[in-house]
Design a protein around this nucleic acid. Sequence first.
RNA 1: GGGCACGUAGCUCAGCGGGAGAGCACUACCUUGACAUGGUAGGGGUCACAGGUUCGAUCCCUGUCGUGCCCA
Length: 958
Amino acid sequence: MIEKNYRPADIEARMSVVWEDSLAFKAGRPDRRDAVPFTIVIPPPNVTGSLHMGHALNNTLQDILCRFERMRGRDVLWQPGTDHAGIATQMVVERQLMERQQPGRREMGREKFLERVWQWKAESGDTIINQLKRLGASCDWSRERFTMDEGLSKAVIKVFVELHREGLIYKDKRLVNWDTKLLTAISDLEVQQTEVKGHLWYLRYPIEGKTFDPEDRSTFIVVATTRPETMLGDTGVAVHPEDERYQKLIGKNVVLPLVGRKIRIVADEYSDPEKGSGAVKVTPAHDFNDFEVGNRHGLRRISVLDKEGCLDLIDNEDYLKGLPEGASQFAEEFNKVDRFAARKRIVERLESFGFVERIEPHTHMVPHGDRSNSVIEPYLTDQWYVDAKTLAKPAIAAVRSGETTFVPKNWEKTYFEWMENIQPWCISRQLWWGHQIPAWYGPDGKVFVAETEEEAISHALGYYVEQEVITAEQGREMALDRNKREGFITRDEDVLDTWFSSALWPFSTLGWPEDAPEVQRYYPTNVLVTGFDIIFFWVARMMMMGLHFMKEIPFSTIYIHALVRDEKGAKMSKSKGNVIDPLNLIDEFGADALRFTLAAMAAQGRDIKLATSRVEGYRNFATKLWNASRFAEMNHCALPDGFEPAKAKETLNRWIAHESAHTTREVTEAIEAYRFNDAAGAIYRFVWNVYCDWYVELAKPVLLGPDSPAKDETRAMVAWARDEILKLLHPFMPFITEELWEVTAKRDGLLALADWPLKRTEPTPEQLAMLAAAAGPTDPLVSPAFVMPIFDHADFTDPKAEAEIGWVIDLVTQIRSVRAEMNIPPATLTALVLAGASAETKERAPRWTDVIKRMARLSEISFADRAPDGAVQLLVRGEVAALPIKGVVDVAAERTRLDKEIAKADADIKRAESKLANEKFVANAAEEVVEEEREKREAALARKAKLLEALERLKQAS
RNA sequence: GGGCACGUAGCUCAGCGGGAGAGCACUACCUUGACAUGGUAGGGGUCACAGGUUCGAUCCCUGUCGUGCCCA
């Protein structure tokens, strides 16, 4: 029995358990051993995360694809898991420690802290997974992975060591984006440029050999800067080589104010004569552009900041080198002053000596850390880098060749843009939570990269024996005795960028580098579903790593979906805290309603700003389906064994089979093309506007009437069409459909594992050849028939049934419309006269008497040669349907109505004729378009003639 | 500054070379035996603006204005 009311919360809780217990989503089910696999790896949410709208959309779409393919018989693996999210997680735990007033990370020490993070993960790491389950995600939960799992860590180590051996990972001292709050390097991608209102300071740098005089412009050169405090690290001044103002100064020195360092004036195209003074100070250790300029001219790099962003001058050999007497006094005064305070004080000091020419307000972009939101400092440090440029080449080629395709295609441009200008990827992070870099340093700082410490020590001992740093005897002793080698080599403290492990996700989760059968079976995956915001962070890097280590693309299709934005149109993010909670929507309207809303709004290439009213509307849709199923149940509609819808005799039943097959094709094709909104729209219209509004209504007289073969057939068909709906709707609304599937009949199995309505037919050899050519080489495991299945449901198409039911619908609709227009109350029944009806109509009408009477509120239906006097005359599919309503019909009003109809017909005739009279139209337009226009004209002419007749009769009668 | 989108009904959004669509909201009527989370019938849009291409433009092209995002 179906419950009276649709209560999503109850159903969802129950169905989750049913699915879990039945292992319905397990990949590699024995009964699908021979099925073609279909694989999606989930974009692993951060363990710190909780479900936001972006996740809800992303996972709804993946689930639709997975459930769809599972019903189509494939062996689906939807690989779930979570990401350790280095910085985010470390921050969460540190914050927790602070809130509980417990010792901080550094006091605790690395080992203890990491224990603490794991403990946190054990307590809270399941949050997001449970929320995904609430959404209905049909992942193979038994295969859940975590980027810091033993297996995945092994993959990370192996990849690092191999790339290092190949020279694709290296250590380099160069500028990085340094977060002075988190005390770590971050990658370019983690830096957000934010517009900040600042100043442009024009500083006077005295020319060597001249006596500085603020009034005499020949004694100094003016440089403009937004960061005056970095001047302490200046090692040059650059002017444009063709800037005439400065030609004579090129090659000369200036004396750096306050510091006294002599620095050279160089010619470099980097300085823009149009901007500021045309001369720029060069600080290679604190600016990315200056770093390049410095390289070109061999300028020194002098770092004047420490890790926290404070001036670091005392004991700073680079800084002090070559400075005149007395420089140490200044160094002592300014040492350990924070960079922003230093800016103020240095400007003051410069002003006091007349070194500041002027200060202008200046708005510019300042880099901020996306996690800490603190100002990022270009900082000179040793870091590990991946040679992304080399790895990007095959990744670019794979997309160029179409081996991997983006949907929608325009994202390929973005991908190429970035990949072709890719910079070395800084992968080391000065954090504790993450994969510790497998590199060890010997006593002299030489680095040994190896998978294990044992391996590293053996390399190191071999090396130092050879270098005669230690004797062969010492080497042997240390190799044999742990205690003796203790502290001889020390491991790199840094961990890897979180995205380093995410880049391996498509194969590390399958068991690589072990020789796991899953790697063979499920790699490459079929489609990656993600938002465009992580194309660079994640998609591109998976492409690079997948191609390098598996020698195969990680996925053949990349479906990029919209971003769900907050009400202001801003991107939602975990750290910004501007997330809308989809769980509230699930609580209020149900997961099915939320999923359907997201699918219906997932039009390609457009962002989603979610309106709650839509969710409510789709909840109502679920209610509608619920009640329609109750109606079927109350009328004992059930599917008898061996029922063949194609053999139905009743026109109405043939019609719903016809309509149903049409919808099936629409939904199937739309999902295949990732047009989720079209698929959702098609099934929505079918359920509500076809099945409920017309089929069920038209079937009522039969269902409520006496027993008959027609009634038996209709009962079967009502149930059959309901089952078709449940199947088609299942990928979108899994909970309600599974529930209804279970309670409406005795079933062989779960709906989640039932067959999709369209059966694949064996393709002909010609079709196979054609498909093989079209499919290309991307997915060798997939037979062409799977890439583009061939379906056959010609059995259901029935134009005759369509015409007949169409006539009924038109007739009823028009009568209803005119009744409403004339304010005839529903309680008043009217008679219907079919005037001058064709043989076809005379044959059809009796079959629909009950239905039409019921739906159009009629007392009787009769035939006549002509419409009775004083009747409202409707034109239904070219024939007159008259409603004689004595005393109700206002003749004047009816004339006006007919006049309006005639005017409309006239307009149609005119439009068609003017087109057809246009020689160019007839000559240039497609034949079927012209033909269509002719048909329109004929139809309008006929309509007008009939309307004129009707008008004539009305005139005669009055 | 470069790039990518987007301006369609009051709101949220589809559509996209051959007569403008949905959901919500709105109006009127309806306790009809699945459903008032419903039914029936309506109202509402120079498809941002200006040019161009075309037999024909909401749709393609160019420009303008406005909005958003990404990268400098």
